[in-house]
Amino acid sequence: MTALVGIVLGSDSDLPLMKDAVKILDTLEISYEVTISSAHRAPEKTAEYARSAEARGIKVIIAAAGLAAHLPGVIAAHSILPVIGVPVKSGALEGVDALYSIAQMPPGIPVASVAINGAKNAAILAAQMIALADASLGKKLHDFKEDLAREVEAKDSKLKELGVEGYLNNK
Score class of each variant (00 low, 15 high):
S90H: 03
A77W: 04
G118K: 04
I30S: 08
S101M: 03
N121F: 11
A76W: 10
G166P: 07
G10F: 09
D143L: 13
A127R: 10
A115N: 13
L81S: 04
R41F: 06
E161L: 13
A42S: 15
E94I: 00
V86I: 12
D97L: 06
M129P: 01
A68P: 05
L132Q: 14
L93W: 12
V88I: 15
A76I: 02
V8F: 14
S113G: 04
S11F: 05
G57A: 10
Y167F: 15
K160S: 08
A21N: 03
K171V: 01
H70E: 01
K171E: 08
I80Q: 11
V88H: 07
G108H: 09
S136C: 00
A63F: 11
A127P: 04
A122P: 05
E48D: 13
R41D: 03
G57L: 11
V74N: 05
P43C: 10
P110S: 04
P106E: 12
T2P: 13
P110M: 05
S31D: 08
A154T: 09
H70S: 04
E33C: 12
E54L: 10
K171L: 15
V83S: 09
M1N: 08
V86G: 08
G66H: 12
L137R: 11
L81W: 12
E146M: 14
G118M: 04
A68M: 06
P106L: 14
I124K: 07
D143F: 04
S37Q: 08
S37C: 07
A127D: 01
A69E: 02
Y167H: 12
I109N: 08
K158S: 08
G138T: 02
N117D: 15
A149T: 10
A3S: 15
S31G: 14
P110F: 06
K139Y: 02
E153Q: 14
G138E: 09
H78G: 02
S79A: 05
A115H: 05
T2E: 09
E161N: 02
E165M: 14
E44C: 00
P106T: 09
S31L: 03
K139A: 12
A63T: 03
S13A: 14
S13T: 07
D14A: 03
A42I: 00
I124D: 00
L28Y: 08
A119Q: 03
S79Q: 07
K140V: 02
L28S: 07
K89E: 15
A21V: 03
D97C: 04
V22C: 10
Q104K: 15
D143K: 11
T35W: 07
G95N: 05
L137H: 10
K45Q: 14
S79R: 04
S38T: 02
S38N: 07
L71F: 11
V164G: 00
V60C: 12
D97R: 10
A65K: 12
L81I: 05
L71C: 05
E151C: 04
I124N: 02
L9E: 00
